[in-house]
Design a protein around this nucleic acid. Structure first.
Lengths: 169, 169
DNA sequence: GAAAATACGTCAGTCTTGTTGACATTCCAA
DNA sequence: TTGGAATGTCAACAAGACTGACGTATTTTC
């Protein structure tokens, strides 16, 4: 109980005495928690010849329907060759549609089909269930702190992408 | 400001009204934050023919010197064949030593060499620096909440491994 | 209107890291 | 003592990331 980070002064911005051990605990917590975080969708995807890459693409196409390939590239942080392989299979399998842009015909706008939305629902249901349980167990103050630390941990441009997604809804 | 999770009653265990959107935000925060979390070590490793798998092995061998291959397998959650490839290169490159067990000669006990410790230091310095910044920006209450939620998000056996590591020091 | 830049797709090759299958060694218990 | 279980190694393969090069259509810029 006496090994948490200590604070001198009363503000949240005050000096924090953070030992290497405390930080290492945070690092390991992040590692193990991320494993739990991806475990459920991974289980669903396995055996249907899709992977985590497909999940990510489906997730962000769902959140930003009509988004372009370039847009998705920036959010996912992969190369277009890598994304293309994934998108090709999703389009072939009828989970995603690709429409030529109206104003700029070079662009392809991506949308989930009904089948795509169904899979998205199945995947995010599993992930949200775990998230909901964790939030319930931890309580609202913990959740607020959780989000604060995660945002502080992002790269600046990732944070921008995150905030943009958050406000785009 | 009015879109956080709400609480009825005064306990942290009370009913929480969590919309799908709030949960989705958490999911995306986790995604983007994990990217930031691994970015610095990835940058260091790139170009030295090592990857994230090597980093993980080095990290946990450092934390539990003399651990066995089987032990490491359970913590990392990969197949022994996969881990073996990583270990082989680390041993060849003189970063890790492997000793046959004294009481059980089937086991191999793994330890970092001086060079291995040096690389571990370099990698964890980078990761701790980001963690420290995030913790400082967020403040101690947020950090406590962060850890609470992460622990609640882990699988039960992962949580046991995490706690064991935490107490083994 | 020609040239440069942008958006997208594709081919070919490499690297990391996960997988399964087969196998050697060592330990332990029937 | 012998057969099964546990520990670890080697070989081959697949997914998914990467780079580099190239082609095409379209838009923007000069």
């Amino acid at each position: 109980m006496a090994d948490g980070p200590t604070q001198s002064g009363s503000s949240g911005q005050a000096l924090l005495y953070l030992t290497d051990e405390q930080l290492r605990q945070g690092i390991e917590a992040m590692f193990f928690a991320y494993r739990g975080f991806t475990a459920d969708p991974d289980r669903i995807l396995e055996g249907m010849s899709y992977g985590r890459a497909h999940h990510r693409a489906i997730h962000f196409i769902h959140c930003a329907p009509g988004t372009t390939v370039n847009n998705l590239l920036a959010i996912l942080g992969v190369t277009k060759q890598s994304l293309n392989r994934v998108l090709r299979t999703l389009i072939e399998d009828g989970l995603v549609t690709s429409h030529v842009g109206r104003s700029d015909k070079r662009e392809r706008h991506l949308t989930l089909t009904e089948a795509g939305e169904a899979l998205e629902q199945q995947l995010s249901d599993a992930q949200r269930a775990r998230m909901r349980d964790a939030y319930r167990k931890a309580g609202p103050e913990a959740v607020a702190g959780f989000k604060t630390v995660l945002e502080a941990m992002m790269d600046e441009d990732m944070k921008r992408a995150y905030i943009a997604m958050r406000e785009g809804r």
